[in-house]
Simulated assay, not measured.
Amino acid sequence: MTSLYPDAATVARMIDHTLLKPEATAADVTALIAEAIELGTYSVCVSPSMLPLTIPAGTDLKVAVVCGFPSGKHHSSIKAAEAALAIEQGADEIDMVIDVGAAKAGRFADVQADIAAVRASVPGPKVLKVIIESAALTDAEIVAVCQAAVAAGADFVKTSTGFHPAGGATVHAVQLMMQTVGDRAQVKPSGGVRSLADAVAMFDAGATRLGVSGSTAVLSHAAAVDLAGSY
């Protein structure tokens, strides 16, 4: 198998170790942080009500927080305020959800304005990721939404919330998103990245970050591959 698979440590540094279940508790988030540090992931990704987080001194673990999650059907002013509060409470990155219905209706200028409103609340070098819910969109809609995200100043386009019945990330969507944004933004698959094979397929398609809740299983397999000396 031809693959760009690097090593377990590099895969770990691509992962936003994610916990977005509605029933998540403060104790669950504390455990998530400990796991993330042990695994060497890039960040933890949590719901905004879990902020502020206590990140142990001496670590470089980043904090990502969702915004307008999971439906995206919030007024732009509400999304912007939610993002601003999350930044104030220590978030390094914001993962916002677009109004998917606006995209389905072809209102891409409104999608761009929605993203721009949140971008204004997330000044650089803070990172803005835009969740487009790719499984619910046609290819043409994916392209148009990615173009709107780049025009609004997004740092990443992200496939999915993981909560939509249409499904999560696919290699096809990641490739299309990558082709559309080029070097103007990065691509983050999320929703359904459950195995090392999934992670490597997304990496090969051009992804530079992964949203993963089952990071331990993915990285345990990666460590085993490293020991075996081949993927």
Rank of each mutant, 00 (worst) to 15 (best):
K21Q: 14
L176E: 04
Q89D: 10
L85Y: 15
D114Y: 01
S76E: 08
A105T: 09
S190G: 12
A83T: 08
P52V: 07
F163P: 09
A113C: 09
A154Y: 03
V63S: 00
M1L: 12
A199N: 03
A86I: 04
T161F: 01
A102G: 07
A113I: 11
A207K: 08
L85D: 15
Q89M: 12
A197D: 13
A152V: 01
E23A: 15
E35F: 00
S71M: 11
V143T: 11
G191S: 04
C67T: 04
F163Y: 15
S213A: 01
A117C: 13
D60E: 11
Y231E: 08
M50V: 14
V65H: 05
P70S: 12
L137R: 05
V171E: 02
D110F: 11
A57H: 12
A36M: 03
H172K: 13
S134D: 11
G211R: 01
A197S: 11
A173Y: 06
L39I: 01
S213P: 01
I94G: 04
A91G: 09
D16T: 07
K73M: 14
L210H: 05
G167R: 08
P22C: 09
I55N: 01
P6K: 12
G58F: 03
R209Q: 11
Y5L: 07
G182T: 06
S190A: 15
A12W: 00
I37Y: 00
V118C: 07
A228P: 08
E88F: 10
E141A: 11
V187N: 03
A166R: 14
T170Q: 10
V218G: 00
T138G: 14
Y42G: 06
A117L: 12
I115C: 08
S134I: 11
V100N: 01
A173P: 05
I142F: 04
A185M: 04
K104H: 10
C146Q: 01
T18F: 05
V218C: 02
L196A: 01
R209F: 04
A199Q: 00
I142M: 15
M50K: 15
V122P: 04
L19M: 13
V66F: 02
T25N: 06
E88Q: 15
P70F: 07
L128T: 02
V171R: 10
A105Q: 14
G68M: 07
D183W: 14
S49V: 14
A34E: 11
V130K: 05
R107H: 13
L32S: 00
L61C: 00
V181M: 03
C45D: 02
D139M: 13
M96K: 10
A12M: 06
G168F: 02
I115P: 00
A57Q: 10
S76V: 10
S121L: 12
A148Q: 02
M96H: 06
P165T: 07
V122T: 05
K21H: 14
S213Q: 02
V29Y: 04
S76C: 06
M96I: 15
I55D: 02
E133Y: 05
F163C: 10
A8V: 13
I55L: 09
V29L: 09
G229Q: 06
R209G: 02
